[in-house]
Design a binder for these strands. Structure first.
Length: 260
DNA sequence: ATGTCGCATTCCATGCGA
């Protein structure tokens, strides 16, 4: 089973890229972030025409997440528990059948948090607290699950071309890394890091200042695997070629292959 | 390099978020 994640930076601006990816790569599941549309504006028909069903948790203008699947999505849960006043659409979870067993998948758009001296950063850290609490509950069920998405976290210096540029940034501050470590220390596996120790593997290149041309990238899109999923990890592939397309997203898709 | 995008507004220019 192939489970991919992609911050698409507006699904309506990138619909041709998306349908091309579904047809060319054909992941079983694709988690999307920053769809930037309300549910009523989600291009469901074009996705169904590619042979996928979809669960959507959208909002006007910003954020918005979705999960696409070749098979039906069950037990869909929109929103990250822990704060009923949070109106930002950043979390969606659903189950998909894989032969005899079910796999729980979440599409995550973790807050950016910049600038760090504002309530945006406090929101990021609090959101990570809620994710840790929720993941802890999922782990107690001892099932196969994958938390995939844009974490807005650069885990280590080797995950940035120029780590010194990110020293004071919300994506790489010590408190951010401590929260990410707490999450992983629950017993989750960073799929890419389970497959290679190589640095220089990036999933995001800024639109500005020729970041792509200079390969000034960062790795911020991750799959965190439950132990039952990590046991079945085969490979991880970053679809870097997507960043070279016309009018690309600033993020590229990344996919894991699980032997279920 | 204040360097680029995408969205929305009372709207053809600007502010916000990334």
């Amino acid at each position: 089973m192939i489970i991919a994640t992609w911050n698409i930076n507006s699904i309506r601006q990138r619909l041709d890229h998306l349908t091309g990816y579904l047809r060319d790569i054909g992941p079983d599941v694709l988690c999307l972030q920053e769809i930037k549309c309300q549910d009523k504006d989600f291009p469901l028909q074009a996705i169904e025409d590619c042979g996928y069903s979809a669960a959507v948790h959208g909002q006007k203008t910003f954020n918005g997440v979705a999960i696409l699947s070749k098979t039906p999505l069950e037990d869909v849960q929109a929103g990250l528990p822990g704060d009923d006043s949070d109106e930002q659409a950043r979390y969606l979870e659903a189950s998909v059948r894989a032969g005899e067993r079910m796999v729980r998948v979440a599409s995550i758009y973790l807050p950016n948090g910049n600038p760090p001296d504002t309530d945006k950063y406090a929101y990021k850290l609090a959101w990570m607290d809620r994710l840790i609490a929720h993941a802890s509950g999922l782990l107690r069920q001892e099932q196969i699950f994958v938390l995939a998405g844009d974490y807005n976290v650069i885990p280590e210096d080797r995950d940035a071309r120029n780590p010194e540029e990110w020293a004071g940034d919300a994506l790489h501050l010590p408190k951010t890394l401590a929260q990410f470590a707490r999450l992983k220390n629950l017993g989750l596996t960073d799929a890419l890091r389970a497959s290679t120790d190589d640095g220089g593997l990036y999933t995001f290149w800024d639109y500005q200042a020729g970041a792509w041309q200079k390969n000034n990238g960062i790795r911020i899109d991750h799959h965190l695997l439950s132990p039952q999923a990590a046991d079945r990890l085969v490979s991880v592939i970053i679809d870097k070629q997507m960043r070279a397309a016309e009018k690309p997203s600033d993020h590229v898709p990344i996919r894991v292959v699980l032997d279920l």
